[in-house]
Computed example of a mutant assay.
Amino acid sequence: MTPPGALLRAAPLDDLIETGAHLRGFGGVHGGLTLALLTTAMAERAPGALLQNVTARYLRPLGGEFRIEVPEERTGRTMTALAARAVTEKGVHVDASAIFAAPRRASWPPVTPSAPAAPPPEDCEVFTIPPEFVAISTSMEIRPVGPNRPYAGGAEPELTAWIRLLEDDEPPDVHRLTLLLDGLAPSYAAVLSELALLPTVEFAVRPAIGLQRTASPWVLLRARTHRASADGWVDEGIDAWGPDGDHLGSARQLRLVRPM
């Protein structure tokens, strides 16, 4: 079984991509892994450029085999806009769009969110997600920070945890970070007391400059639900930091609650 990090390094993006059951999330191929693969394919069309933003829309669950299509790019003065989609014989399952731009030298003052106070990962207990619920979780090590846990009926819709891939000690690049940003349970689950599905409808990722200098496989994630409506639509924000406090990137998820 190919682990997710190895798949991101070696996926034959011009051929049929085969993913096993060990890479599934809510009902299909894990959403973060799918977007990471789509981003990898788009990055090949923008060599030397840095990803500024990528957004995916999950139209239907994706099975184990699919192809990635990348239509022709559109290039402006400072950026390249690309699109990609994951396709099976049933049609388009996931479509994505991204903005890439060449590195720039500038001296504008940076603004980044501060990392929450957290003990080092080795001082935190391991949290195991049942593999029958999210199979790809067996490829990750998750160590929660603070008392909040999924489906524990807590007061705050927030989850904070250290996370890493188990297969090696490589620091995350933009593709691994995309996968890890979708590695925790939905933060809204922290206020629920019974199991419910919260599949992703839309997932947007914005890498930060700190990602280029991180050297640790560990990523500190803080996910918080900013808004949830009575009909089940959930707006979630996620931020990532390295162990040195460098901000690595942000994500936004639109989810929809569904009963089990």
Rank of each mutant, 00 (worst) to 15 (best):
R143V: 10
R176K: 00
D246C: 11
S193K: 07
H30I: 01
S114L: 13
G210Q: 03
P61M: 06
I142K: 04
L82F: 10
W233H: 13
C124G: 02
A102C: 03
M42P: 02
V111E: 13
G32Q: 09
I129D: 08
A240H: 02
G183H: 07
W218N: 10
L8H: 04
Q253R: 14
A83P: 00
P109H: 06
L7Y: 00
T112P: 00
A106F: 09
A46Q: 09
A106L: 12
S250L: 03
A185M: 14
G153M: 00
D14E: 15
A208N: 06
A155F: 01
P103M: 07
A21G: 05
H93C: 12
I136W: 06
L165K: 03
R105H: 11
I238C: 06
A11N: 05
L180E: 07
V219Q: 04
P144V: 12
L220V: 05
P109S: 07
G232M: 04
M79Q: 14
T75F: 03
P259K: 09
L8F: 01
I17G: 05
P131M: 04
V205G: 12
S114V: 12
D246T: 14
V29P: 01
A152D: 15
L50V: 13
I129R: 08
T39E: 11
A223P: 03
A208G: 14
A96F: 05
M1D: 14
